[in-house]
């Protein structure tokens, strides 16, 4: 359990939200989609390792 991980995810969310707002206001709507997708991919890349650790720990605990 690391609080920095959840803060990273929240930070990425806010950065993406602000970037999307700025890009939307300046009329670059097609780039908004790419920014959102990039943000989601970055967050999922952070999360995958943690989910893998959780599943491995459960597997080791119950003798898989």
């Amino acid at each position: 359990m690391d609080v920095t991980l959840i803060l990273k995810v929240i930070g990425i969310g806010f950065i993406v939200a602000v970037s999307a707002q700025i890009l939307g206001k300046t009329g670059r709507d097609e780039q908004v989609t790419f920014v959102i997708i990039a943000g989601i991919v970055a967050v999922i890349a952070l999360l995958v390792g943690e989910i893998s650790t959780l599943f491995t720990t459960i597997g080791e605990l119950f003798g898989f």
Partner: peptide
């Protein structure tokens, strides 16, 4: 602010607590 990022935050909190 942006609904797409609610789920990853929830997942992170759940995974951390369950670990």
């Amino acid at each position: 602010v942006r609904r797409e990022f609610e789920l990853p935050v929830r997942l992170t909190a759940t995974v951390g607590l369950l670990t």
